[in-house]
Design a protein around this nucleic acid. Structure first.
Length: 339
DNA sequence: CCTTGTGTTGAG
DNA sequence: TCAACACAAGGG
């Protein structure tokens, strides 16, 4: 744990009666960019002590809120809901937590408190973990550690001869996977045409078809977050000059209840196997998805942090839609078991 | 008891 | 979207 910016002591003098209320401070030796305007204590000259005594100091940092006990909370909003990122001793720590969350939730260009830049390693790390997991790390203050550990592991990746049983757990919890691309499905993608158009740029790059295969097509296997394998026929349609998933696609649409605008995302393991993965996200998760913490309907057994046994959960009818999303978002819970 | 983090609101 | 504020839930 890097406690790079700590600076105990230094209490604010103004504090009158409040038992809770620690000072704030700026970080001294840190090489972080933003410094803001330092203390933000509100002095109430008229009423002096009385009015000021119970007011919490606000933070100069985005996403950082004061706690009654003098510590700092970090939070980020998504879909009209607050996602709590934990509490921290220092504002700057909370601010950094917010930054990480912002990057994961809102992408590379999101507004943050510090460091506009992310190295590729951290980007990969962020993208290979679900939001829920990232949040979990932040709350437990383990993000830095896990990031370090992950970058170390990825260097040894090729060494390890053993392959882990593929399953849901690999999705966000453990192994590296790289995001290939997302597509917001069009009405025709989920309509009666029974096909998904793969944007050419992505087709060329990630699903290259060799000459012989172009018309006939090839079969590609994708694993969903439940470990279920979906096989799609992938081919090129001369008529429309487009790359498409055909056979098998409509079943996916049906089972997942895909609707126009939903996001389908493709991933690939970075290991030798290049296993392909498919996931989807409702475009408009209307029903209270926002909270990252939600009941977890799935069982996963984890052995020594490596092997994962997924117990398929039978879901009836349309429920699937939401349940799967929850499952994906909160797979953090399964991750804990092994630690 | 104390701390966390949620409920809630109003401003932007 | 966001932070301020109040306070209930939860852990020790």
């Amino acid at each position: 744990m890097e406690t790079s910016c700590i600076d105990e002591s230094s209490s604010i003098s103004i504090s009158a009666s409040p038992p809770t209320r620690l000072p704030e401070r700026r970080f001294s030796g840190c090489v972080l960019e933003r410094v803001g305007s330092g203390e933000s204590v509100v002095l109430d000259l008229e009423n002096g002590v009385e009015a000021e005594s119970r007011k919490l100091p606000s933070s100069q940092y985005k996403g950082v809120v004061p706690q009654p006990n003098g510590r700092w909370g970090a939070q980020i909003y998504e879909k009209h809901q607050r996602v709590w990122l934990g509490t921290f001793n220092e504002q700057s720590e909370a601010a950094k937590a917010y930054d990480v969350a912002a990057r994961r939730f809102r992408g590379r260009d999101s507004v943050t408190n510090f460091r506009p830049l992310l190295d590729s390693g951290e980007t990969l790390f962020l993208n290979s973990h679900s939001k829920g997991e990232i949040v979990d790390m932040l709350r437990k203050h383990t993000y830095e550690d896990e990031l370090r550990q992950s970058t170390r592991n990825s260097n040894e990746e090729n060494e390890e001869g053993k392959r882990v049983v593929r399953g849901f757990a690999d999705w966000g919890c453990e192994k590296q996977r790289e995001q290939l691309f997302d597509k917001a499905v069009t009405p025709s993608d989920v309509g009666r045409l029974n096909r998904l158009v793969i944007p050419k740029q992505h087709a060329d790059r990630y699903f290259p078809l060799h000459i012989g295969n172009a018309c006939k097509g090839v079969l590609l296997n994708f694993e969903d977050p439940w470990g279920k394998v979906w096989r799609f026929r992938y081919s090129y349609w001369n008529s429309s000059q487009s790359y498409v998933f055909t056979k098998g696609w409509s079943r996916f649409v049906k089972e997942k209840g895909l609707k126009p605008g939903d996001l389908v995302s493709f991933h690939r393991s970075t290991s030798l196997e290049k296993q392909l993965y498919i996931d989807w996200t409702p475009r408009n998760p209307g029903g209270g998805i926002g909270g990252t913490y939600t009941a977890e309907p799935v069982q996963v057994v984890r052995l020594f942090g490596v092997n994962i046994l997924k117990v398929p959960v039978v879901v009836e009818g349309k429920k699937t839609r939401e349940l799967e999303f929850f499952q994906y978002e909160s797979c953090k819970k399964q991750c804990k078991g092994a630690s």
